[in-house]
Nucleic acid binder design. Structure first.
Lengths: 182, 182
DNA sequence: GACTCGTTGTACCAATCGGTACAATCTCCC
DNA sequence: GGGAGATTGTACCGATTGGTACAACGAGTC
């Protein structure tokens, strides 16, 4: 009955809050309201396929809403501001955590190494393109893009560790000036 | 036979590489060479007690080697440089991951919320003290300390996600100038 | 030798894990 | 109504989970 596409965000939330290994089939059936029968009908590959498709969906969302605008900016400064505001929305101002980061730190990293690496690599590359459009040298653009991606991840970790989502908001606002500083 | 104190680093490494939930008793017995009998003799509280004591040991190490020197600096600039080099050593230049961060992102966060929060709070506080000694205002010192802690965590995430520990080294070296910039 | 006491291995427990099998059901088209 | 194919619930599987019970072992001490 339920749309398969509507399933992925729910699965994503379960993986996000419990981790890959922690997201048991019991939790998944509870969250989705679907029994194992339906689950394995939609995802014959089991948990791994679920996680893969969730990662692909996240990747697709970022590609369309964040990365692509950065790479093809009419105004690069506006594109960068749009990235920061899009990221703020996506991570619910620091209340939500990054599933790709969670998997990267967890033991399941090896199984999803390619997708995890691609996600961060494309983020950094796209941002570096926009920064070059603002007149920064290739070396500086790459380093600042790396700094931005890493700061966002670190802010999510710290926000969750301290139970203080304001850390995330502060970091994004500082990034706005630091990215384009002289 | 084995010294109980010598057990904690081994346990720490298992938790670090497999996460709290992923560190099964089977893995722990294999890594330590101790059967369940010995394990539960030393840690009647089971896995949770093991993790608690490992966290306490890590906390103690950072307190003695990183935090305390920051709070009582003869030369604050040297203390900050010592922190960066100590952190570089501890995290093996980005090859090792932060157990406290791993737990913060995982589902076990709630069980260790106090210790996780304390660790990061004391890190930030200690660094802020050193920065104030360098002449920074209280507000700026606090924000820069937060930025440093969060950058280190983010660098560890990104280094592991991309399989490139150089990210961590670059971040530490940039932090050195960014922390005390005008 | 007998006593203790800290330590260890092993057998065992109920619960849960991810996954499979399959019959029952639903939906849609003819 | 009847057939077809997608969807679903449920019972079940072997393996593994964290944890317990307990008997055996070790080194000292008297």
């Amino acid at each position: 009955m339920k749309d398969r596409a509507a399933l992925l965000p729910i699965l994503g939330e379960v993986f996000r809050t419990h981790g890959y290994e922690g997201a048991s089939l019991a939790l998944i059936t509870e969250a989705t309201g679907l029994g194992k029968g339906s689950l394995y009908h939609f995802f014959p590959g089991g948990k791994k396929q679920m996680a893969e498709e969730v990662l692909a969906e996240i990747d697709g969302w970022f590609e369309a809403n964040i990365f692509a605008p950065l790479r093809d900016p009419s105004d690069p400064r506006i594109a960068i501001a749009a990235m920061l505001s899009g990221v703020d929305d996506y991570f619910r101002s620091g209340h939500r955590v990054c599933l790709v980061g969670v998997i990267a730190l967890g033991h399941a990293r090896d199984e999803f190494a390619v997708q995890v690496n691609d996600y961060f690599a494309r983020w950094q590359d796209s941002l570096a393109v926009a920064l070059r459009c603002c007149g920064l040298s290739a070396v500086v653009a790459r380093r600042r893009a790396e700094d931005a991606v890493l700061s966002i991840q670190g802010a999510l970790v710290l926000a969750r560790a301290r139970g203080d989502s304001a850390v995330f908001t502060r970091t994004l606002s500082e990034l706005k000036t630091r990215l384009l500083a002289a």
